[in-house]
């Protein structure tokens, strides 16, 4: 894919933003783990050449509210600190993502599934610098605890498993970003703000 060699491993910086949705992300379940656990928790959870990661949070708000926030992609930089900019042009969304050493990468996606209050799935298209897909799912949580939000991400790691290890060491692997972004999303939805321990604004 064009641009892939240029950006190297640093392109993994996008977390969920970089993710486009893998419509078939429960692949692990179909590939051998025979227990009741979600497929994305399988010890061997690759999907073809793609790495798969997922993370779930419970948010004490109605699913419709959470879906509405997420579906308006312009909102997402509030919880995705590595996303500089999001532009929408027809069916194509372009995510400008900050990478180490002052670089940015552009991920281009289109929505492949959109079921209000339930699921948004997306996939990268021609011209994207990361080959990725993903989805975010909203479901009623048990015992009136609100909504469980699961993000599943599949991506083709540049330079394979080695690149993935380097990215992980740099804290920029999609799994780490996804966890952080979902937690920020939860904070914003439950409290109206995102926790910071700073004492004063950055100089």
């Amino acid at each position: 894919m064009a641009g892939k060699s240029r950006v190297g491993w640093v392109i993994l910086g996008g977390g969920i933003a970089a993710l486009a949705v893998l419509a078939y992300a429960n692949a692990g379940q179909k590939r051998g783990n025979r227990d009741s656990a979600p497929g994305h928790t399988a010890r061997r959870r690759r999907w073809g050449d793609y790495a798969v990661e997922a993370y779930t949070v419970t948010i004490a708000r109605p699913g419709s509210e959470l879906y509405a926030f997420w579906r308006r992609f312009q909102n997402l930089p509030q919880v995705m600190e590595n996303v500089d900019n999001i532009t929408e042009d027809g069916e194509t969304t372009t995510w400008t993502i900050r990478a180490p050493m002052g670089q940015t990468v552009e991920v281009k996606t289109r929505i492949v599934t959109d079921q209000p209050d339930e699921v948004i799935a997306w996939r990268s298209i021609e011209g994207s610098e990361i080959d990725t897909s993903g989805k975010v799912m909203f479901a009623d949580a048990p015992a009136g605890r609100g909504t469980t939000v699961t993000a599943i991400i599949a991506w083709d790691p540049p330079f394979g498993p080695l690149g993935q290890i380097v990215a992980k060491a740099a804290g920029r692997e999609p799994a780490i970003q996804a966890r952080h972004e979902l937690k920020r999303f939860k904070m914003l939805m439950e409290t109206g703000e995102i926790a910071t321990a700073h004492r004063r604004p950055a100089e």
Partner: peptide
């Protein structure tokens, strides 16, 4: 969830991500 259960010291949202 934890705060509404009265488990305030287990708050999910006060420790920065």
């Amino acid at each position: 969830f934890f705060c509404t259960e009265g488990l305030y010291s287990a708050c999910d949202n006060s420790n920065p991500v």
